[in-house]
């Protein structure tokens, strides 16, 4: 959450450009590959099953098999390995690694000593149990994040949001989700342009209090602009036939390939249930 940089420059170069260039471009989802060719409904359901399996795993070796499977799927779907590793390792798993470090020591996880060292007269003991806890924790987070990112990368975003209908999500949520996604892009553009305007007028070095006022003004300004936009959008919706109830077209079709994929996931699931029940932890 903390970064040593100027907030204006950082906002422009950081998350805003990342969102525009990497997320909204849907570059990977438009490629031809294994996961891109699957029906989005089947893909979401099977990925949910895989995620739940990862959540239930108790053995780090099986977890690593799952992670390897995820990497293989990413390669078969035309995702560059280095790009995928960067997307999945940076942020959450790296943060989790730092979170897990204290758990390897005997203060938090007592057990058999694996290594001992002294810092400033204080004895630090790394325990085997602590290492196992940390490895399982980071491995699980990494595998979960990798599956989630792979699903997002290989599916067109509007398809992913439409899929929520099969989970009987109330219409108000589905409709809001679809519209919200488009607004996010618009808002990101507005924020980027506003920050560029501020940068060109006041430079990049701003006093903390002044900076806080600029951010608050930006948030308030964004709200008022969007509030005013609401009327125009409603009129545009009316002119396109909106009657108060949303209507969504269903273009999904399940193919033989999808059934093969489902059979494969079902087999993996049964294998996993068998292994999880027979490995004593």
């Amino acid at each position: 959450m903390f970064k040593k940089n100027n907030f204006i420059e950082h906002s422009i170069q950081g998350v805003l450009s990342f969102l525009k260039d990497s997320i909204f471009s849907e570059e990977v989802a438009l490629k031809k590959g294994l996961l891109q060719s699957l029906d989005p409904r089947i893909k979401v359901l099977t990925f949910l099953v895989l995620l739940l399996q990862v959540l239930w795993l108790k053995d780090v070796r099986i977890l690593m098999v799952f992670y390897g499977f995820c990497l293989a799927l990413s390669c078969l779907s035309g995702v560059r390995l280095w790009f995928f590793l960067k997307r999945t390792w940076i942020f959450i798993p790296l943060f989790s690694l730092f979170v897990a470090i204290p758990a390897i020591f005997s203060f938090f996880t007592p057990g058999d000593a694996y290594a001992t060292f002294h810092v400033g007269g204080i004895k630090f003991v790394i325990t085997s149990q602590g290492l196992a806890v940390a490895l399982l924790f980071v491995g699980r987070v990494l595998t979960c994040v990798s599956f989630a990112v792979l699903l997002s990368l290989t599916t067109r975003h509007f398809e992913l949001l439409k899929v929520l209908r099969i989970f009987k999500v109330p219409q108000i949520f589905v409709m809001t989700l679809g519209m919200c996604y488009r607004y996010i892009y618009l808002f990101v553009e507005i924020i980027e342009h506003t920050y560029l305007a501020i940068k060109s007028r006041v430079g990049v070095s701003v006093h903390t209090q002044k900076g806080q006022r600029i951010v608050a003004w930006n948030i308030a300004n964004l709200w008022t602009r969007s509030y005013q936009l609401n009327e125009d959008i409603y009129r545009a919706m009316l002119s396109r036939g909106f009657t108060g109830e949303p209507f969504v077209l269903n273009e999904f079709k399940i193919k033989t390939k999808d059934w093969l994929w489902v059979s494969w996931v079902v087999m993996v699931t049964f294998l996993f249930i068998f292994l999880n029940a027979h490995i004593k932890i």
């Binding site: 906002s11 409709m175 969007s226 919706m237 108060g244």
Partner: peptide
């Protein structure tokens, strides 16, 4: 109706302001 979606997008982007 659009205001609800605007509110959702707004709550999303607030977290982007450093």
């Amino acid at each position: 109706v659009p205001l609800l979606a605007i509110g959702a997008a707004f709550s999303f982007v607030i977290m982007m302001f450093n």
